[in-house]
Computed example of a mutant assay.
Amino acid sequence: MPSMIAISATAVPDHLRGALTRWLLEVTPDLYVGTVSAKVRDELWTSVAASTGDGTAVLIHPADNEQGFTLYTAGSHRREPLDFEGMTLIGFRRESQETAKPL
């Protein structure tokens, strides 16, 4: 049964953005929304995760859990989904000493 999904893809290659627009609407820059089957959703996410490069991507889709949705992330990002007793929370990674900008 088809369900609505949302994919946020920031700083990803142009070919990936084009591939996403074949299945989903780009409602604002970098935000793709549509209704697809679970098989199409999984195939899209496999392509996104493999092609993210230096960018970041997040997939959100309905799920039968307390929050009503599941989210997946790919790429280099500061935000990280954490499971806390069945609830997904977002944690922030600290910048390492090597990548921190001098004052």
Rank of each mutant, 00 (worst) to 15 (best):
R79M: 10
G55M: 02
S3H: 11
H77P: 00
Q67A: 05
I90W: 12
L31E: 03
K39G: 06
E98S: 15
T21S: 13
D42S: 07
G55D: 02
G18M: 07
R17L: 10
V48R: 06
M4A: 10
W45S: 06
D64M: 01
H77R: 12
M4V: 11
H15T: 02
M87K: 15
E43P: 03
S47I: 01
W45F: 04
T88V: 15
L20N: 02
R93N: 15
D42Y: 01
A49R: 10
P62G: 03
T70Y: 05
V40W: 01
G18R: 12
F69T: 02
I7P: 03
D14L: 07
G68S: 09
A63T: 13
Y72A: 09
F92N: 10
A74H: 07
L59D: 02
E85I: 15
T73P: 01
R94L: 15
T99I: 13
T28G: 03
T88S: 14
A74G: 12
V12D: 05
M4R: 14
L44S: 08
S51G: 08
R93K: 15
I90D: 09
P29M: 00
E66L: 11
A11K: 10
L16C: 01
A19R: 10
D83M: 14
D30Q: 02
G55F: 05
A9M: 02
A11V: 06
R41A: 09
H15P: 00
L16F: 03
T35K: 10
I5C: 04
L16E: 03
V40H: 03
T10W: 06
Y32F: 13
V33E: 00
G18Q: 12
L59Y: 04
T56L: 06
R93D: 14
Q67Y: 00
A57I: 01
S3E: 05
M4P: 01
G18K: 12
Y32G: 00
E43S: 11
L24I: 07
P81Q: 12
D64C: 01
V36I: 10
F92D: 11
I7F: 03
D54H: 14
P102K: 14
I60T: 08
A19Y: 13
A9V: 07
T28M: 10
W45I: 03
V58G: 01
T73Q: 08
E66R: 11
D83S: 15
T88P: 14
L44Y: 09
V33I: 12
R94A: 15
A50P: 07
A9R: 02
Q97Y: 14
I7N: 06
